[in-house]
Write a protein that binds this DNA or RNA. Structure first.
Length: 372
RNA sequence: GUGGAUGUAGCUCAAUGGCAGAGCACCUGAUUGUGGUUCAGGCGGUUGAGGGUUCGAGCCCCUUCAUCCACC
C-alpha cells in the first residue's frame, strides 16, 4: 500500500499524473464530486463508475453528526458502508463547522459548536478530526484547519498561524500515511505574503498532498487566479496539489493551467437541485420559460444518459420538483465536469492544453444572449 | 320564488370613507471543502357590471349579474 504520485506529462505549468491509492489509481487532474452522509446525493456508485469517476469526497462533519463515525467504522468503513470501492477523500469537518453550525467557542485547541441537526453541543479539534477520519477510513484525509473570510487580513493571519499549529497536531495524531494519506492545507486569504508563508510551512511538513484552502469563498475570480499564481510556485513539484471547493468549469481551467491536480465541488449536484445544467455554451437554467417546448437535449456536444430527454421534459421535471430531475441533472453535470477535466488531461499529454482552454472558454463564457 | 352570504392580482385573502397590498403562483438573477433551502429583483388590477352620495368610494346607497347556503 502506498501513495505515490507520478507525473506523466507537462504542458507549461500544467501536469498530468497518476496518484496511486489503496483503492486504485487516480488519473490527474481529477474532479471529485462531493457527497453528504457518505454518498453522492442522488447518484449511486453504479452511475459514478459508468461516468468514470475516480475519486469522491465524503463529508466528515455530516458523517460525524449522522450516523456517527463509530457506526461507520463498525459497519466496515466508508467504502463498504456506501458500497463504493474506489478512492475516497474526506474533508476535516472544519469548513462545515464554520459554515453550517452555530459556533460557541473557537480557541487554540479547537472549536465547540452546536449541531445544525439537533442543536447538541459538539467539539472538533485536530485530534478528534483525525480520529473521526480514521474511523471513516477514506484513502485521503484532510488536516483540520480554519477557513476565514479571505479579505480580512488580521483574521486571515491569525487563521494561518492557527491552521499551522493544528496541522502539526494532525501530523502527530496521524503518523501513518500507508493506509491513509494526510494532506495539509494552505491558507492566507487573498494576501500574497500570507499565502507564500503558509505554502512554505505546509511544504516543509513532508505531506502526501497539499491543498489550497480558503478560496472560492467570496473573493473574485481574478483574486482567486492571482492567489493561485502566488501560491503554486511555492509548493513542491512532486506532490499532488488540491484546490478545495473548486469549482466551476472555467475555474477548473484556470486551476489546471497553473498546475492544480485535484478538485472537489458541490456545484454539479447543487446546480442540479436548482434546476441548472452545464453546457458547452455556458450554464443554463432549465426553469427559464424559453425551454418550455425545447426538444433539444441539454448539450448537443455531450452525449450521455440524460441526452435522451428533451430540455422541455427536464424543465417539466424541475418545475414539478420531481426526484428524477435531481438525478438526471446531477448525472449530466457530474459527467460534464469529469469529461472536461479528462479532456484537459488528454490535452496536457498532447501538449495542447492552451488551445483546448482557449476554445473551451470562448464558448463557455459567451454572454447568454449569444447562446443557441 | 323567498331570505342570507360572498364577489379585490392566475390562486387564497387583506385594506376607520383618504397613495389597492400580502402570501403563493408566474418571470429573471445569485448560490464554489453539499441539505431540495435561502436571498435579491420583476410582471401582474377599470376592486363583477351600471348608476348615485361625497372634496374623495374597494368600503355608504340604488339597480343588475354571478356564485354559494338555507327555506319553499
Amino acid at each position: 500500500m502506498s501513495f505515490e504520485f507520478e507525473i506523466v506529462a507537462r504542458d507549461g505549468s500544467a501536469r498530468a499524473g497518476i496518484l496511486h491509492t489503496p483503492h486504485g489509481d487516480i488519473p490527474t487532474p481529477v474532479f471529485a464530486p462531493v457527497g453528504t452522509s457518505g454518498t453522492v446525493k442522488a447518484v449511486p456508485p453504479r452511475d459514478l463508475r459508468a461516468l468514470d469517476i475516480h475519486l469522491i469526497l465524503a463529508n466528515t462533519y455530516h458523517l460525524y453528526l449522522r450516523p456517527g463515525d463509530e457506526l461507520v467504522r463498525d459497519m466496515g468503513g466508508l467504502h463498504r458502508f456506501m458500497n463504493w470501492d474506489g478512492p475516497i477523500l474526506t474533508d476535516s469537518g472544519g469548513f462545515q463547522v464554520f459554515s453550517l453550525s452555530e459556533i460557541n467557542e473557537i480557541d487554540d485547541h479547537g472549536v465547540t459548536f452546536r449541531s445544525h441537526l439537533d442543536g447538541s453541543v459538539m467539539r472538533l479539534d485536530p485530534a478528534i478530526s483525525m480520529a473521526i477520519q480514521q474511523n471513516l477510513g477514506a484513502d485521503i484525509i484532510m488536516a483540520f484547519d480554519q477557513c476565514p473570510p479571505p479579505d480580512e487580513r488580521e483574521e486571515v493571519s491569525a487563521a494561518v498561524e492557527r491552521s499551522h499549529r493544528w496541522l502539526a497536531r494532525c501530523r502527530e495524531a496521524h503518523p501513518n500515511d500507508d493506509e491513509q494519506a494526510l494532506f495539509g492545507i494552505v491558507q492566507g486569504g487573498v494576501f500574497p505574503d500570507l499565502r507564500e508563508k503558509s505554502a512554505r510551512f505546509v511544504s516543509d511538513m513532508d505531506l502526501k498532498g497539499i491543498a489550497i484552502g480558503g478560496l472560492a469563498v467570496g473573493e473574485t475570480k481574478a483574486e482567486m487566479a492571482a492567489t493561485l499564481d502566488h501560491t503554486l510556485p511555492c509548493l513542491p513539484d512532486g506532490v499532488p496539489r488540491y484546490l478545495m471547493g473548486v469549482g466551476e468549469p472555467d475555474d477548473l481551467v484556470e486551476g489546471i493551467r497553473r498546475g492544480v491536480d485535484m478538485f472537489d465541488c458541490v456545484i454539479p449536484t447543487r446546480l442540479a437541485r436548482h434546476g441548472a445544467a452545464f453546457t458547452h455554451d455556458g450554464r443554463i437554467n432549465l426553469r427559464n420559460a424559453r425551454f418550455k417546448r425545447d426538444e433539444a437535449p441539454l448539450d448537443a456536444h455531450l452525449n450521455n444518459y440524460t441526452s435522451q430527454f428533451s430540455r422541455a421534459y427536464l424543465r417539466h421535471l424541475v418545475v414539478a420538483k420531481e426526484l428524477l430531475a435531481y438525478y438526471l441533472l446531477s448525472l449530466h453535470n457530474i459527467d460534464f465536469l469529469a469529461r472536461h477535466v479528462e479532456n484537459m488531461r488528454r490535452a496536457i499529454i498532447e501538449g495542447k492544453l492552451q488551445k483546448y482552454a482557449a476554445q473551451f472558454l470562448t464558448r463557455f463564457m459567451r454572454p447568454p444572449e449569444a447562446h443557441p
